[in-house]
Amino acid sequence: MKKPRIHFKSIAIFLSLLIMLQSCSVYKSAPVSIEEASQANSKVKVYKRNGEKVKYKKIIMTNEGHYYGIGKTKIFDKSKRVLINEEEIVMIRVIDKVQSSISTGGLLITWIGLNIYGISK
């Protein structure tokens, strides 16, 4: 009986591709106000006047009317609240969950198809 042929290189590339594409995010092209971004309760990308782009897991509004961006710090993956100065904001874009899922799935299906085509040759 023949043993099934395992392509370790293909499996390793597939797993690394899966890990890399999990962080793939597509943002809606239409900018939203800070109020709409806080109501969306999803990932946002804030463009500032100084050219800086900041990503937050979500934006929240406190009882005092201040807006905070919730983001991960690089140390220990803890959430961090950052006060957002509304005067510095040029544009806010909210994540497009549907488009993000489609693009991630489409890339994976394309990669799998090309890999199968390459193996069958």
Rank of each mutant, 00 (worst) to 15 (best):
Y68L: 14
V26I: 13
E52P: 00
V90F: 07
E86L: 03
K43F: 09
G51H: 06
K57L: 07
N85R: 03
K43W: 06
N50R: 08
N63M: 11
N85W: 06
E87C: 00
K53M: 10
Y56V: 05
Y67V: 03
S29Q: 15
N50Y: 04
S23A: 12
K57R: 15
H66A: 06
I89W: 02
T62P: 00
G69A: 03
A40S: 15
N63G: 13
G69N: 12
G69E: 06
K48G: 01
H66L: 08
L18Y: 00
G69L: 00
K80L: 11
P31V: 02
I19C: 09
K58L: 04
F76K: 09
T73R: 14
R49K: 15
V32I: 12
K74D: 09
M61F: 08
E64I: 04
S42Y: 02
G71W: 01
F76A: 15
K72W: 07
V54K: 05
G51I: 05
V90K: 10
A30L: 09
R49Y: 12
Y68Q: 13
G71D: 06
R81Y: 13
L17K: 01
M20N: 02
Y27M: 06
N85F: 11
T62K: 09
Y68A: 00
S79R: 00
L18V: 05
Y67K: 03
C24R: 04
E52H: 05
N85L: 11
I34A: 06
I19R: 10
N50L: 13
T73P: 03
R81E: 15
P31R: 04
V82R: 10
V90T: 04
E64N: 12
S23N: 06
K53H: 01
A30F: 03
S23R: 01
T73N: 13
S79G: 02
K78W: 10
E86V: 14
D77C: 01
K80R: 15
S29E: 15
Y68C: 04
I19T: 13
N50I: 03
V54I: 14
V44S: 08
Y67W: 05
M61W: 06
S33V: 03
V90M: 02
I59D: 09
V54N: 02
I60A: 07
